[in-house]
Design a protein around this nucleic acid. Structure first.
Lengths: 349, 349
DNA sequence: AAGAAAAATGGTAGCGCTATCAAAAATCAT
DNA sequence: ATGATTTTTGATAGCGCTACCATTTTTCTT
């Protein structure tokens, strides 16, 4: 005989508890202690076959779904990992998230998504709010945050991976590539092909400082070369194909002396190429065009776009793996990973 | 003098509790009862200005971050909403998610992301797992699920919005458009422009049944017209530009009699157009091309792509608003919303 | 076969927060 | 002023689960 505690479980009408089946109900039906059900679910090997199957039956029969909140509260462990990115409009973040998601899912983790819209204040709030879920780790885009954000994350004492860019100083772990270097390499390439007056076209460069770093890299390299110069174009709004399309027209009109344009991303660069096609502007004859990211479309346009290929999905996978390694107590192969980049020299330059 | 309960809070070393500051700590510092801190945080108006500011000071001083899990468990309320989509590789889902995210964030909700990879089994598991977070509602792509999934969701007694497609039977609420109708309209358009032998090009059509519905719609319309016929091409893999690029070449070779191709999405259609451009295939002279979705790029390629514009972000916004309306106890303006579609007849047909 | 070691099960006590009701303080009416 | 009403604050008791330790049962030694 099991002495059912009188006023327990759902008998109490004070709280709605959305009428759900609890672990105690399963336990009662299977005639075992609640803790045994808990074990059967979380650590099946520690329960005898007999009880395990009796419990499984009860679970199925009642349609029991464990309350993660209660479990997490009691064990101080969650399997939900916040992933914070600036925006979803940029394919690049999507692909990184995809990589992260694939790896996390494979290990039974869930992804809690936050977007900052490139706003560091909002980022800080988001980090703080998401820490309220007592996650086992945090994944966040970028190395630049408010001091407050850094403090919060450091104090939380959690594994943290900063993604997208590779740099010397990180909160905990870092996976990315050097955008400065990407800019230098592109400059190198353009110089080698004989271009001397190069425009860099970006959007919201104050917020999108990684694009700005690419410009800085290009600028630095061009400085080393005599008779080369650059020009910076910073448009408002998102870096869309439409924007590249418009920018090409404007820039050719206002700055006809330029012989090459390095766009902050492939979307814009492709937009420019499509515009050139439509208007019969010769590329690279009249002006050369280069992009960044290595989106699939870059090799399909005519002329094929010269770009820098970034291993975005790999970045997501690597970042997630590093985080999981740390969560499970081990230490990742490396605390900082430079995933590198590859310049694809094609027809547009 | 407040009588600090002897062995409470963090003094107990049995559990790690990741050394975090709790509400009780804040209460002690502010010399009020814990419940008052809770109120000051969740319902500031119900606490006097004096205590409120004293509590705020204590919160800041300690860097207190409320444990959402504990709060959710106690109140049986969360502000996290699962959003389940087939994949992140498809821009369409991204834009819907973006819309959802914007609306949810504005109302203080968080987005818990799940992807099914078009696998209904996985979808069922995901739904079940995510319900463990006791969410106030669920957002899910599509109207077709396993019976099991439907049962679980109905029994959960939560507001549920099914997105992407519009149809007669939904679990609870539905926002989308009629894909069958989209197919009919495109067929109508192609017939009007004189095309008679039309190929439909899709990928994984068994899984992507919405694309299949577009084909069905087209097929139905073509049946009504004598001397018109269609042909279905179903490729494996994702519906990328590369795939459209390849498909155009193959199909022109194997089925030279076709005079128009309706691609399952703009990505593929754009890929085909880019291929045609590269190879000097006349569009629509040799073959007409149409797409679906109305991605921005569709109007930038040459020739501009005829497509059907779907209001993706609007869908996300609407869906989220309907859900929130239901969560806050009200009822949405409508239980089912057809967001409609718009055929953009352009140069490629 | 008797005792020791290992495995399986259970009892108890929280995890950190909030719903409920009760008490205290402030405001109002007459 | 005095009682009635409203507002503010607090004590208590869980939400559903798991950590910890204790107990029982099984398996292993020699």
């Amino acid at each position: 005989m099991d002495k059912a505690p009188p006023e327990t479980t759902n008998t109490d009408s004070r709280r709605a508890s959305h009428g759900s089946v609890t672990l105690a109900d399963v336990a009662a039906l299977a005639r075992v202690a609640p803790i045994t059900v808990s074990r059967a679910l979380n650590n099946p090997d520690s329960v005898s076959e007999t009880l395990r199957s009796r419990i499984r039956t009860a679970v199925d029969q009642l349609g029991y779904v464990p309350n993660r909140m209660a479990g997490a509260l009691a064990s101080a462990k969650t399997k939900v990992i916040p992933v914070i990115v600036p925006s979803l409009s940029n394919v690049v973040f999507i692909e990184v998230i995809e990589g992260v998601q694939e790896t996390l899912t494979a290990h039974g983790y869930q992804l809690l998504l936050g977007t900052t819209d490139y706003n560091l204040e909002r980022e800080a709030e988001l980090v703080s709010a998401l820490l309220g879920w007592a996650p086992p780790g945090v994944m966040i885009a970028g190395l630049r945050h408010l001091p407050r954000t850094n403090t919060i994350l450091k104090n939380a004492g959690l594994p943290v991976v900063e993604m997208m860019e590779y740099g010397a100083r990180c909160i905990d772990m870092n996976v990315g590539l050097s955008h400065f270097r990407a800019g230098m390499e592109m400059a190198e390439h353009l110089l080698a092909r004989g271009y001397r007056k190069i425009g860099f076209v970006g959007t919201r460069l104050r917020d999108d400082y990684r694009a700005r770093q690419r410009y800085d890299g290009m600028h630095r390299r061009l400085l080393e070369s005599k008779n080369a110069c650059d020009m910076l174009f910073d448009y408002p709004g998102g870096g869309s194909q439409q924007l590249g399309w418009n920018a090409l027209g404007d820039i050719l009109k206002t700055n006809p002396e330029l012989d090459a344009l390095f766009f902050a991303n492939d979307e814009m660069a492709v937009g420019a190429i499509l515009r050139a096609q439509r208007d019969g502007i010769a590329i690279p004859g009249r002006i050369a065009i280069a992009g960044f990211n290595g989106l699939p479309v870059s090799s399909l346009v005519t002329p094929a776009l010269t770009t820098i290929i970034s291993p975005r999905k790999l970045m997501g996978h690597t970042a997630a793996e590093m985080l999981l390694a740390r969560i499970s107590g081990g230490s990742p192969a490396a605390r900082r990973v430079n995933v590198g980049l590859e310049l694809a020299a094609r027809e547009s330059t």
